[in-house]
Design a protein around this nucleic acid. Structure first.
Lengths: 223, 223
DNA sequence: ATAGTAAATTACGTTAACAGTTTAACATTT
DNA sequence: AAATGTTAAACTGTTAACGTAATTTACTAT
């Protein structure tokens, strides 16, 4: 039938252009292609992506409410420059919310989640032995698992946003060489505590983990 | 000088229309003028406010990223209906972040903040004696004070957003008759703990306060 | 009378054009 | 040569119009 083909086509194309632009720009900022202070000129972007200015503007407004860019009235939008102080503020908030998530996950752990945790721990072990693996992917899985286990989608969403925010403005993408392995081990400890339903331990481990991450970031950015 | 006059004039008119529309719509949602499920038709709003659709759209996009409305592609935007579960999720997050703020405030308390706290406590006492006063204003002052004392603007901003969110979708504006006085007393306890630099106490009081607020909300919404 | 279909209406998605402001270059004057 | 005034280019803010998809309405045929 033609209808089905048309449906799959429109389905693909149903997402407004603004969403694609938003994804493109956010990714570019997260990857460091656009750096703090860079101007994002609507017409330039419109020509580059071969669309009109409107979807660009709409994407920029979304980035503005998430503080990735700031718009100066009548002047334009620039990639936000962020102070070290603000990053430390976010680390503090992250510590609070991540430990909450860990505690909730430990409270609500069940057989299904436990199985998922076992699988992820096994993958982490393998990565630690083989000296690497895809740490980024493991990190994503870790966050997804905790988010699901905590049973609080709103919390998960906020955590994702906050981590994106930190990542964008601290160039944490290529983290410290020794730190990734350490982080994996810390994740293992947290997952183990959650698996056993030990709320207090899961929360403490998470707080320690975030504190170490913060120190690693600070020692790096002071160079 | 002409320059100063011109400056104050442009200052006034510098804010784009979209900001005014955003303020108008958000206020309307917070006041309950637009309720969950109501459609917000761009053209209708544009005619009502005597402007074109574009600033309307821009304001709606901002409201969308803050989850006050949701837009269905090709259909339009409606005021978000929120589940009870999600409100409870937000209460949990609020408890975590507010207790963090209270702890930080207690850590960083100084003479200036202590003086402000004393003044606010005196106002609360007066309100409690006179049987009321402007509780809403006292609430705002309480939040501003804690936000300032905690020295974490990002945290303060998130708290404001989350509270707006809860307020919009729980019709908490006209709270329970007995609850406002109780809340004022709890605020007093928290402020006292902060004033004395007692971190643990400030955090505990805040957790208890939020837990009571949650229960009050739940008992109310189950009617 | 009902069901199915076609037309008209509605409303969003996008584009293009216009208006107003800011920035920058340039010329003029001291 | 420096400073100031003027002009032009660039960019955002806003409007209006067009295209398209979805919904509703009305009409026709059974």
């Amino acid at each position: 039938m033609v209808a089905r083909m048309a449906e799959s086509w429109t389905q693909e194309d149903l997402s407004p252009i603004r969403d694609k632009v938003y994804a493109y720009l956010k990714d570019a900022i997260l990857r460091g292609e656009y750096k703090a202070g860079d101007r994002l000129v609507e017409r330039v972007l419109a020509e580059k992506l071969n669309i009109s200015r409107t979807p660009i503007r709409e994407a920029l407004f979304r980035l503005e409410t998430q503080r990735f860019v700031r718009t100066v009235p009548r002047k334009g939008v620039v990639v936000n420059e962020i102070t070290q102080a603000e990053i430390l503020e976010v680390f503090m908030i992250l510590a609070s919310l991540e430990s909450l998530a860990a505690r909730l996950a430990a409270q609500k752990v069940n057989d299904e989640i436990a199985g998922d945790i076992d699988r992820l721990i096994a993958e982490i072990d393998a990565a630690l032995d083989n000296g690497g693996g895809d740490e980024v992917e493991l990190n994503v899985q870790y966050n997804e698992l905790i988010g699901r286990a905590a049973g609080n989608p709103k919390l998960h969403e906020m955590l994702v946003d906050l981590k994106d925010y930190v990542r964008a403005f601290s160039n944490l993408s290529s983290a410290l060489p020794g730190r990734t392995k350490e982080a994996l081990r810390e994740h293992k400890d947290i997952l183990g505590a959650i698996r056993n339903g030990e709320e207090d331990l899961a929360e403490s481990f998470t707080r320690i983990h975030l504190e170490k991450s913060r120190k690693a970031y600070m020692s790096r950015s002071h160079v």
